[in-house]
């Protein structure tokens, strides 16, 4: 057998150490890193500015005071009606959106064939709904809930009434409009939670002679609860700060009473920020009031966001432990 002479000697490895300063790598990492930290810096700047200017005026009196003695006077004005208004519309919205969103997600993951036309249309509609501008929801709420449903309800229920009862801006119409807007949030979150449940659990339940509905109610839904909760909180935190959809459907600039009925208009934290920023007779004088109101709104939405993040993290940890 012929041997091949080994003529190739590997060149000695010069050094494993960084041979030269890699300028491109440095630049690229530097620029993208700068983008990241700039965004965070802006965020911190906004938050810092609001907290620094707002906290001195942020007091118990401010949180529990009303607006009946002049809403632009920093000495007397409080945000209780706005907090109650915002809370009511959010709670009502949750009552409307959670069942519909959860049922839709259940249908899509548990009942329908994953490739069926119905599912694809629902999916398209959900994606579309998620992208509709919030002001269009406002127009829709005004045109459909208030002017169509509300007016027809008035004709049916209160034909003699001189003033519209249902056919005017009201808590219920604002809540329903927001429910339509946040429907995709709840559907997507619930769907994700349902999909993460092992298929074996459903099979086990069905093989024991449980009906589909029993399986869904007793095995699937309890497992999906954290996901549904996250979806609900995300929807709430999205809706809490939204102003455009309620501009025409329920929020008013001044209504010092707390809303008592579904047909009452209401004051709203977010809308109040808008009013204080744009309608104030003396912006310098109302500045502390404005900052404190913004702080109240931010506290509300951030607390909700943090809650959602915590619940989600908890859920992920639990799921990881299961698998």
């Amino acid at each position: 057998m012929q041997t091949i002479p080994n003529t190739h000697t590997p060149e000695p490895v010069a050094h494993f150490h960084r041979s030269r300063f890699d300028a491109w790598s440095f630049l690229f990492t530097g620029v993208t890193g700068a983008c990241t930290y700039l965004i965070i810096a802006i965020l911190l700047l906004i938050l810092g500015n609001i907290v620094l200017n707002g906290y001195s005026h942020f007091s118990w009196r401010f949180l529990t005071g009303g607006a009946d003695r002049g809403m632009y006077d920093p000495e007397t004005a409080g945000v209780l009606p706005m907090i109650v208004g915002t809370a009511s519309r959010i709670i009502l919205m949750t009552i409307f959106v959670i069942p519909v969103g959860v049922i839709t997600a259940l249908y899509m993951t548990e009942y329908a064939h994953s490739t069926s036309l119905g599912i694809r249309i629902i999916r398209g509609a959900v994606a579309n709904l998620a992208g509709v501008p919030s002001i269009v929801f406002g127009l829709f709420g005004w045109g459909f809930f208030l002017n169509f449903i509300g007016t027809h309800m008035d004709q049916l229920l209160h034909p003699e009434a001189a003033k519209a009862v249902w056919g005017k801006p009201a808590l219920i119409w604002a809540s329903l409009t927001l429910a339509v807007m946040t429907l995709p949030v709840v559907i997507v979150a619930t769907e994700e939670a349902l999909k993460s449940i092992p298929h074996g659990l459903r099979e086990a339940s069905l093989a024991l002679g449980a009906t589909k509905l029993q399986t869904v109610l007793r095995i699937v839904l309890p497992q999906a609860m954290p996901g549904i909760l996250t979806g609900g909180i995300l929807a709430i935190s999205r809706a809490a700060g939204e102003v455009a959809p309620i501009l025409f459907t329920g929020a008013v600039s001044f209504y010092p009473d707390l809303p008592k009925a579904l047909t009452d208009p209401f004051m709203d934290l977010g809308y109040h920020v808008f009013i204080l920023s744009t309608q104030s007779p003396n912006i310098e004088q109302t500045r502390p009031l404005l900052y404190a109101t913004v702080m109240a709104l931010l506290l509300l939405t951030f607390l909700l966001n943090v809650m959602a993040i915590l619940v989600r993290a908890q859920m992920r940890r639990k799921l990881r432990a299961l698998q």
Binding site: P198, G200, L201, E203, A204, S205, A207, L208, G209, I219, Q223, L322
Partner: peptide
């Protein structure tokens, strides 16, 4: 009436 045991054990949580 026809019970089943699966390949991967799947107790409910």
């Amino acid at each position: 009436r026809v019970g089943m045991v699966f390949q991967k054990s799947n107790p409910f949580p």
